[in-house]
């Protein structure tokens, strides 16, 4: 009967033949679509309504009616770097998974480690970007552009941070040799979450940064 539970855990005895945990993470990801859709709607609705503070175009320098000078807010090179980091991390984690499934522990550690580095630097990029924006006068309180920008990208950043913690745990597990091919599903689930965070950024990058 212990075998029965073991089989259940690996999706061999479920009614659909799919693993419970993998189906659960997909369900969760589906639910998260609505979470980010609401935040993106909020950003798009508020994009153009800011009575004070930096604006009206966050891409250009601007002089407010009261004569205040503002530098352009958004820096495309910096955020392009962040985007590239996140895209590459998606590639790296899928390579890590392929190595985990083949039982290549060294490859797993290497690619997962690179994924972690990318995620870590993405979060660093965002911290730098946020503090830089605040320095230029864009804060949560300054106007609705700032409020909806920080809320949307901030919650995305929180998701990345949680993903980094999750993957770091798995890297340590892998280092201790606890992710054999039979347990590669542990990594697959975390990787699905990580890819989802990446596709959300794929939407955020043009919608928030490129489109004026």
């Amino acid at each position: 009967m212990a075998d029965h539970a073991h089989a259940l855990e690996h999706g061999l005895e479920t009614s659909t033949g799919l693993d419970n945990r993998k189906l659960a993470i997909w369900t969760f990801i589906g639910s998260e679509c609505l979470f980010f859709a609401s935040l993106i709607s909020n950003f798009l609705v508020h994009k153009r309504t800011w009575p004070s503070g930096p604006g009206p175009f966050p891409h250009d320098a601007w002089v407010s009616p009261s004569g205040q000078h503002f530098e352009p807010i958004i820096e495309i090179p910096l955020v392009t770097l962040g985007t590239a980091l996140l895209l590459f991390s998606s590639l790296f984690v899928v390579l890590a998974l392929a190595n985990a499934q083949r039982g290549n522990r060294k490859g797993l550690l290497l690619w997962l480690g690179l994924t972690l580095l990318c995620g870590f630097f993405f979060v660093g990029m965002q911290v730098y970007e946020f503090s830089h924006f605040v320095h230029k006068g864009l804060t949560l309180k300054s106007n609705l552009y700032g409020a909806s920008f920080f809320t949307l990208t901030g919650f995305h950043g929180t998701h990345v941070t949680l993903g980094v913690i999750w993957l770091l745990t798995l890297w340590i597990e892998a280092f201790r040799g606890k992710i054999p091919p039979a347990k590669s599903l542990n990594l697959e689930i975390a990787a699905l979450y990580w890819h989802f965070v990446d596709v959300v950024w794929i939407v955020i990058f043009p919608v928030v940064y490129l489109i004026q």
Partner: peptide
């Protein structure tokens, strides 16, 4: 099934936006 569980919410999300 995985595609369904992802794409259906995605459609609703797009319609909402």
């Amino acid at each position: 099934l995985f595609s369904g569980v992802f794409v259906f919410p995605l459609v609703i999300a797009t319609v909402v936006i």
